[in-house]
């Protein structure tokens, strides 16, 4: 049996990140602010092709897009 998150195209890491975010958000206010700083991610990335740097993209949105694509291909 495939787990629901797998069927939705998430990677294990993404699944963990989402779970961790939920736990952090359910904390009390003062602890939550502290904990949420540990979950911040603000990276940009670029694909390189044939020695040329591609466009700088936001990593979070790119990951989401890739996973949405994976979900589309696995469900069809």
């Amino acid at each position: 049996m495939v787990a629901a998150w797998k069927a939705a195209g998430l990677t294990y890491n993404r699944y963990l990140a989402v779970a961790a975010r939920v736990v952090r958000r359910s904390l009390k206010e003062d602890l939550r602010l502290q904990a949420e700083r540990r979950g911040e991610m603000d990276l940009r990335f670029a694909k390189w092709e044939a020695g040329k740097q591609g466009e700088n993209k936001n990593l979070a949105s790119a990951n989401e897009a890739a996973m949405a694509e994976a979900a589309g291909s696995s469900s069809s």
Binding site: N13, A17, A20, R37, M41, D42, L43
Partner: peptide, 21 residues
């Protein structure tokens, strides 16, 4: 190539996002 690291202590979310990519 990834950019935007090193401003602060790296978080596990950083590592996860990089690993995913």
């Amino acid at each position: 190539s990834f950019a935007g690291i090193g401003k602060d202590v790296p978080t596990f979310a950083d590592a996860q996002a990089i690993a995913d990519q």
